[in-house]
Design a protein around this nucleic acid. Structure first.
Length: 640
DNA sequence: GAATAGCTAAACAGCC
DNA sequence: TGGCTGTTTAGCTATT
């Protein structure tokens, strides 16, 4: 690896042209392969949304600053047709709760059905609002964009609307925070969370993805520009309902968010609450059955106005409210993550159960759930995982210690599933040369290829091997000669190469056989985790569309018989009928064989695998087990 | 640290 | 003669 990396750095482009073929830019490609591809993840999307929000807000501010001297915002900004939920909740969903923290939280929870029910309801309400937020945010963005364009053409009257929208934007942004806070504090109230209300959480935990400094700056800009316009309005000191007289510039510390909450609690949330509660004039998310639902409060009020007064007085801006808000946001975020995980888990469970119901023969030492090979069609989820992702791409490193070789992972599923990827991306496949050569040979109709055909297979299947031919071709030849598993056969066409499957197995180190724990940890210990998982999952798909038919199962050749014995003895995953599982059952494993040239000892086409295999495989311990169907269907490709 | 596996490079020979 | 094929050796790194 180091050698390769080092050479990669030094040789690189210098060898592109005219350089000795052995070093022509070969490693440069490998470094490219480490470049993540453009796969958009949820977090990317979230970050993108955040950036969009920031961008919009900054545009607003810019417009404001440019025209602030000439235009005063109307005092009744709050009377602007108040959008209910302008901002995607993803913009402010905290992303900083670690799995450990969540686990800690969950460990402290013993949820009663009622609690779960309540939790679920809250979550549903929140999700509903999130949708509204997203929808409105899109509209808001479009609208703002249009307005900005219009303003650029001199329509200064638009500035008022922009200012109003800015405020609405700000309010709604905080509105979501408040909702999340409610959710969190409700958890606290229900004893689901042990975080104390006054427990201050890190500032960076307040928002997801949004850089705290950035957010602070944004907030500062918003409030400053707003105050510029509004500083003439007397502040009655009551951070209450009147949004036309907002509180002064909030302090730079984290309580600034709380201050907004203090404003909006009695205003924006009221609107929000009416949205959720059939627009009842006296409904409020924090008010129900005459009780203040602020986490940990539960104060009783006879009328809604008393509640509002209480809300403004007791739950206005302070450190406690801010902290509660933060915690709430985090909990919501974590619940969302947990929900996503549980959904995934459910999917895996369903898939697993489906597999179990159709699996004809459970493996003696089953692999991790990832190793199951459902007969049914792949779910979108599993299909998603069966293709190469940037994450898995990360794992594709030097060819050395390819997982397919090391743990007998099937390479064909991976290759097939990611065929397009390998064909188009100059990413080095995570398989050894020997594995690839074997794959090429086994994919051929006659299970034999000339050297040139092997070359062609490499270049056809992998964009990576369309360059630096001298290097990898040399390696191919080297591997063909070096490994006994590759048998040179002379036929009428000339020399062709075949695979001695049992020899191929022999050369495999028995590293993890008989150790379920090790087997279980394959996925986690291998550096190719995602790709490996992809291989496993891809193998599911291949059960439906096997590369090689099972036509020869009923009439196993000597070779397959030996392998079958080996399987019985060792529980090997390998198919065994290395040369017999061809799609043409009548074909000889080594057809048109005139002469076989094998390293060290010549092999008779009829004998070369029988006695040798039966003896040697008795000591051969497989790396792990696969179910027989899988072996039969994919025998040739999955034993690496 | 030793053994092993894999990759790369290179030299060499035989054949066409 | 040059290219291709095949073999072999060596050095290096990673893994076990």
């Amino acid at each position: 690896m180091m050698q390769e990396s080092g050479t990669e750095a030094t040789n690189g482009t210098a060898n592109q042209n005219g350089a000795p073929p052995s070093v022509e830019g070969h490693r440069e490609v490998r470094s490219k392969s480490a470049t993540p591809s453009s796969d958009i993840t949820v977090s990317d999307l979230v970050n993108f949304q955040q950036q969009q929000a920031l961008q919009v807000a900054r545009q607003i501010l810019l417009q404001q600053q440019q025209q602030s001297s000439a235009h005063k915002s109307p005092k009744n900004n709050d009377k602007q047709p108040a959008p209910q939920v302008p901002v995607s909740v993803a913009m402010m969903t905290p992303q900083v709760i670690t799995p450990q923290q969540m686990q800690q939280i969950l460990q402290h929870q013993v949820l009663s059905p009622q609690q779960l029910q309540l939790l679920l309801q809250q979550q549903q309400a929140l999700m509903l609002q999130q949708q509204q937020l997203q929808e409105f945010y899109k509209k808001q963005q479009e609208q703002l964009h249009l307005q900005l364009i219009q303003q650029q053409h001199g329509s200064k009257q638009q500035s008022k609307e922009v200012s109003a929208q800015q405020l609405a934007f700000q309010q709604q942004l905080l509105q979501v925070q408040q909702l999340q806070q409610q959710h969190l504090l409700s958890l606290q109230r229900q004893g689901l969370l042990s975080i104390q209300p006054n427990q201050t959480l890190p500032l960076h935990s307040l928002t997801q993805g949004m850089i705290p400094a950035e957010l602070q700056q944004l907030w500062k800009e918003v409030t400053n520009s707003h105050v510029k316009e509004e500083n003439s309005a007397p502040n009655n000191g009551h951070r209450g309902l009147d949004l036309s007289s907002p509180s002064p510039v909030p302090p730079k510390n984290h309580s600034q968010h709380g201050s907004t909450n203090g404003q909006y609690i009695s205003h924006s949330l009221k609107r929000e609450g009416s949205t959720l509660d059939d627009h009842s004039p006296h409904s409020h998310p924090l008010y129900g059955h005459g009780v203040c639902k602020w986490p940990g409060c539960e104060a009783v009020f006879e009328d809604f106005h008393s509640f509002l007064k209480h809300l403004n007085n007791e739950h206005a801006l302070d450190d406690r409210s801010t902290a509660q808000c933060r915690v709430q946001m985090q909990v919501v975020q974590q619940l969302e993550l947990q929900l996503a995980k549980d959904k995934e888990r459910l999917q895996a469970m369903m898939t697993h159960l489906h597999v179990k119901s159709t699996e004809p023969k459970p493996a003696p030492q089953p692999l991790t759930p990832d190793a199951h090979h459902p007969d049914g069609p792949l779910t979108p989820l599993s299909q998603t995982h069966s293709v190469i992702t940037p994450t898995s791409l990360h794992s594709v490193g030097p060819m050395r210690r390819r997982y397919s070789d090391k743990y007998n992972m099937p390479i064909s599923p991976d290759i097939v599933q990611n065929k397009e990827f390998y064909m188009n991306a100059e990413v080095r496949p995570p398989f050894t040369y020997a594995s690839l050569i074997r794959q090429a040979i086994l994919e051929s109709p006659d299970k034999q290829l000339t050297l040139n055909e092997i070359y062609n297979w490499f270049t056809r299947m992998f964009a990576y091997f369309r360059r630096n031919a001298a290097t990898w071709k040399n390696a191919v030849r080297h591997n063909l000669s070096l490994h006994k598993c590759f048998v040179r056969v002379e036929n009428v066409k000339g020399a062709v190469w075949t695979v001695d499957e049992l020899e191929f197995q022999k050369r495999r180190p028995q590293k993890i056989s008989g150790s379920p724990a090790l087997v279980k940890n394959i996925h986690t210990t291998l550096g190719y985790g995602p790709a490996l998982s992809a291989a496993f999952q891809a193998s599911m798909a291949e059960n439906n569309i096997p590369l090689y038919t099972t036509a020869s199962i009923g009439s196993p050749t000597l070779n397959s018989l030996a392998s079958a014995i080996r399987e019985e003895m060792n529980g090997a995953m390998d198919h065994g009928n290395s040369n017999g599982s061809d799609s043409s059952p009548g074909r000889s494993p080594l057809p048109a064989m005139h002469h076989i040239s094998v390293k060290e000892e010549p092999l008779d086409p009829e004998e070369h695998e029988g006695p040798l295999s039966l003896v040697t495989t008795a000591n051969h311990s497989p790396d792990f087990d696969h179910n027989r169907d899988y072996e039969d269907d994919h025998g040739h490709e999955d034993m690496l």
